[in-house]
């Protein structure tokens, strides 16, 4: 990670070496020094988890910061000894489905809030802000009691099913994300959809063919945020999914190290990397939107 010294490469020949170094140290050198410390802080837990995943012994007590050997024993154990693929599929199901449906619902609502004027618009927008103060998981007791009854009537959406928890997650589809999207929709010139309407497009055609392609960045950001928060959701999932085969990967990993913390740590490390993998991939592909999207959301509140 050490970074070359730019000033020594292209330094003017008129200055002495010491003076050039002093200039560089004052302008850029200290920045590199600070960054090395920050980077060390940022990556040491990641290095530790990678090294633990590769550690042939697979225990917490034998895992070092640096890999001491490379073996896939932990990964093999994880696949053999736990319903890892089921857990992983569950996690990806919740994250992907919730992200997709939330983006759709939020975009639909944001379109109405941004482009139409109707009775209740103001109440709706303020209401969305107010409901944010009572996050869904605060009502977990009520949700639990509700689904005790719902599960009796409809076992297909009861506890330990995918659909029940998904329904609850979708209850949070309209949220601050809708505000973020509405702010972005507002930046698309109205003339665009007005001219399309004059050409005979229906409001649905305007929405799907004109608006959606123009607001892709904000759709990507909301999808990313929802995907990441769903795959890391623990509270509601732990109340809903109690059966081993119904668990998400996060719950499964929690269970794995809750009982055998030392012995199972290698398997946990592999699982932790696998759980981070989809997030890393999504980040990699969306990174150019992230900074802009987050700040856009920030300014719009």
């Amino acid at each position: 990670m050490t970074v070359g010294d730019p000033e020594t490469v292209r330094a003017p020949h008129t200055r002495s070496g010491a003076a050039r170094f002093a200039l560089w140290a004052r302008r850029l050198g200290w920045r590199h020094a600070v960054m090395l410390v920050v980077v060390a802080f940022a990556i040491f837990p990641v290095m530790f988890v990678v090294s633990a995943a590769l550690n042939p012994l697979g225990t917490l007590s034998s895992a070092q910061l640096w890999p001491t050997g490379a073996s896939l024993d932990n990964a093999r154990d994880l696949f053999r000894n736990t319903p890892f693929t089921t857990w992983y599929a569950n996690s990806l199901f919740f994250a992907a489905t919730n992200a997709a449906v939330t983006v759709l619902f939020s975009a639909l609502a944001a379109y109405a809030f941004s482009r139409m004027r109707f009775r209740g618009r103001r109440v709706g927008l303020v209401g969305l802000l107010v409901i944010q103060m009572f996050p869904q998981f605060l009502a977990i007791v009520a949700i639990y009691l509700m689904f005790s009854t719902i599960g009796e009537l409809y076992p297909a959406v009861g506890f330990d099913t995918r659909w029940g928890l998904l329904l609850v997650y979708l209850g949070g589809a309209l949220s601050i994300n809708t505000w973020l999207m509405k702010g972005f929709f507002d930046t698309v010139p109205k003339e665009l959809d007005e001219s399309a309407q004059i050409d005979g497009a229906t409001h649905a055609q305007v929405f799907f063919r004109i608006m959606l392609p123009l607001v892709t960045p904000v759709l990507a950001i909301v999808a990313l945020l929802v995907f990441v928060s769903t795959i890391n959701e623990f509270l509601m999932a732990s109340v809903f999914l109690r059966d081993t085969d119904a668990k998400t990967l996060g719950l499964g990993l929690y269970q794995l190290v809750a009982s055998q913390r030392n012995a199972n740590f290698g398997m946990f490390a592999v699982g932790a990397l696998m759980l981070s993998l989809p997030t890393l991939i999504v980040f990699w592909f969306l990174q150019r939107y992230i900074s802009d999207g987050l700040t856009a959301g920030a300014v719009k509140g």
């Binding site: 990641v46 890391n232 623990f234 990993l253 699982g271 932790a272 981070s276």
Partner: peptide
């Protein structure tokens, strides 16, 4: 490298 922690799964990282 600096944003790496943000891209890791927070649930797994808390346990770590």
């Amino acid at each position: 490298l600096v944003i790496l922690p943000y891209a890791m799964s927070s649930l797994a990282m808390f346990l770590l």
